[in-house]
Nucleic acid binder design. Sequence first.
DNA 1: GCCTGTGAATCCATTCACAGCT
DNA 2: AGCTGTGAATGGATTCACAGGC
Lengths: 213, 213
Amino acid sequence: MARETRIPNATIERIALYVKPLERLLEEGTEVVSSRKLALLCRVRSAQVRKDLSYFGEFGVRGVGYDVRDLLREIRRILGTDQEWRLAIVGLGNMGQALAQNPAFAKRCHRFVAAFDSDPDKIGTTVLPGLIIQPASEIVQVCRAEGVHIGLIAVPSSQAQGVADRLFEAGVKAILNFSPFQVRRPDCCHVENVDFTVSLDNLAYFLGRKGKG
Amino acid sequence: MARETRIPNATIERIALYVKPLERLLEEGTEVVSSRKLALLCRVRSAQVRKDLSYFGEFGVRGVGYDVRDLLREIRRILGTDQEWRLAIVGLGNMGQALAQNPAFAKRCHRFVAAFDSDPDKIGTTVLPGLIIQPASEIVQVCRAEGVHIGLIAVPSSQAQGVADRLFEAGVKAILNFSPFQVRRPDCCHVENVDFTVSLDNLAYFLGRKGKG
DNA sequence: GCCTGTGAATCCATTCACAGCT
DNA sequence: AGCTGTGAATGGATTCACAGGC
């Protein structure tokens, strides 16, 4: 398929969703899955699954379906979750601590190589085996030295932009921002925001409309 | 403006984003804001801000801009974040505990009226003043009695569908799902998924493409 | 001059529907 | 018969560009 075509953003998001059901199928010993079945598991349409995958190649067999193991491997390769990306986390309050310990990072090949906080009581303490909290003032120096790829921001929104700027300065090109603040970024960098209050507000909106016009 | 027009989903999400910058402006004592300035703060385009707001009415003054206080009130009314919605949370591990204590709910008028877990050690303990953990087996009965509007799911993905089904059975119409599992739902209900690993995978994808074709 | 509100134009994403393979 | 891969059609969302008002 024309590898030149621009790939819809929504396609990448969905492809990331396909992973977990596929892992499940693999565990259950299912070897082949149709777009129809995968779509069912992911709550999307089967044509969507086929179109999404077709952007990256022809992974299926006509008349048969997709090999679960192969498809998983392909998707991981496409997403780049099969290679080691180096992470730094800034802010180790409740949220930051919980994040660092989340198994999602290890399940991919991602690895925390630095942790920062500005609270003197926290500096020097251990978050994970081998991961010691360093002063936020050293973000630029340490991240540059460690070759950090992805920065996680888990600080109050008032500090988010400052932290982001220092990460960019250190050459970090990707940021996962858990603070509810829209950070400015250089064109070459990518920021993903994670803010559950937006979803919450959507629910409230939905409830408010129900039964009305 | 034609209140009949279907409102884009993306518009609701953005309108929820406008709130925080507006609150900030209000605190700073700014009384009027232009679509250009608000767009800048929210990292969107000014035409987008105007179009989004125009779906709900004419809130601005030509040649001047929008009154910050009025606009905030209007947006809160649109989203329904100015009324009390009753919440129940299921699953009080790290994530659930942190969630229940998150100030975002109180800042809106939302109120936790029930909490559930299946761990006997947790049942009977207090999450928030007046909020005591009850056994998960009582979800249907308690949620019905309490008139719960929104259910928060913070259990392992293997239990997510079961919990969701019991919430729906109790008449809960909206679910905020923090487990990485796509739950099935009745047509009349709404589910919002919060899964940061999708954002994380997007970043990995972006990093993998950089510098390539 | 500056700013909103909005139809029209454009851009992007999803879905259809079927040719092609097993 | 069953399923993929995909061009064409449809449906949605964003952006343009300007009329209308301060």
